[in-house]
C-alpha cells in the first residue's frame, strides 16, 4: 500500500519519532566522545512542513549554515543531513582542534573536519538504527556545503517535490553542555520507504 505524508496517523508518527530516538542517542554519544564534553539531545520530533516553511526550522532562509549531506540506500531510501549554524560550526571545530582563539574563516582542513564529524554522527545513527530494526542501510560518502539555509534545504524539498507538496523530517536537536554548539540532525526518508520503516518496528499498514 502506498502511504503518503497526508495519511500518516499518530501511531505512524510515533514510530518515526522512535526511529529518531534510536539513531540520535547513539549519535549524541559519538559526538560527546569526540569532543570530550557532555552533549544533550531533545526528544526527536517528526515535522511535516510545507516547502515554504522548511527553512524556518533553522531560523530563516538566509541564515548561514554548514550542512553535511548523505544519501541512504538499501532497505530504505532517503537522506540524512547534519546542520550547524555557522557559529556553532566554528566553535565545534575549535573544540575539536584544541584552539583557544576563535577562528573566523573555515579553511579546507576545518571543512574536512566538519565533514568527518557529520560522517561519524551519521554512521552512529544509522548503525544503531540498522542493528535495532534489522534493516540493511548504507550511507553514501558525505558532501559538505556552507551556504544559506534555504538553498541547502531546497535539496530535500525537491526530493519530496516529486511526490507531494510537503516534507517529512525526523529532527533531533543536539546541544553541548555549555550551550555553545547547537546542531540539527535530520533523517529524511523517501515517502516510498515509510512502510518499510514502520514494519521494521512492528507496525503494519
Amino acid at each position: 500500500m502506498d502511504l503518503s505524508i497526508e495519511n500518516l496517523n499518530n501511531l505512524h508518527l510515533d514510530v518515526l519519532q522512535e526511529i529518531g530516538n534510536i539513531g540520535a542517542g547513539n549519535a549524541v554519544t559519538a559526538l560527546a566522545n569526540m569532543i570530550n564534553k557532555k552533549v544533550d539531545m531533545d526528544v526527536p520530533s517528526v515535522k511535516i512542513l510545507n516547502f515554504s516553511d522548511i527553512s524556518a526550522i533553522l531560523g530563516g532562509e538566509e541564515i548561514v549554515v554548514s550542512g553535511v549531506y548523505f544519501g541512504i540506500t538499501g532497505d530504505i531510501e532517503g537522506n540524512i543531513m547534519f546542520l550547524l549554524d555557522i557559529e556553532s560550526a566554528k566553535t565545534l571545530i575549535n573544540i575539536l582542534m584544541g584552539r583557544d582563539n576563535k577562528t573566523e574563516i573555515l579553511d579546507e582542513m576545518d571543512k574536512s573536519a566538519l565533514q568527518e564529524i557529520g560522517n561519524i554522527l551519521s554512521g552512529a545513527y544509522i548503525s544503531s538504527l540498522s542493528s535495532l530494526t534489522g534493516l540493511d542501510i548504507k550511507i553514501s560518502v558525505p558532501s559538505l556545503c556552507i551556504d544559506m539555509a534555504g538553498a541547502i534545504l531546497s535539496v530535500p524539498a525537491i526530493q519530496f517535490g516529486h511526490t507531494g507538496d510537503k516534507v517529512l523530517l525526523v529532527e533531533t536537536v543536539l546541544q553541548d553542555g555549555d550551550n555553545m554548539v547547537t546542531g540539527n540532525f535530520l533523517l529524511i526518508p523517501e515517502t516510498s520507504s515509510f512502510p518499510t520503516l514502520l514494519n521494521s518496528l512492528g507496525v503494519y499498514i
Binding site: S55, E61, E62, M148, G150, A151, L153, S154, V155, I158
Partner: peptide, 15 residues
C-alpha cells in the same frame, strides 16, 4: 507586482 514593487526569493538553491 506592479511598479514600484519588489519581488524577492531568499536562499534559492537548486530551484
Amino acid at each position: 507586482i506592479q511598479e514600484p514593487g519588489i519581488l524577492t526569493t531568499l536562499g534559492l538553491g537548486s530551484c
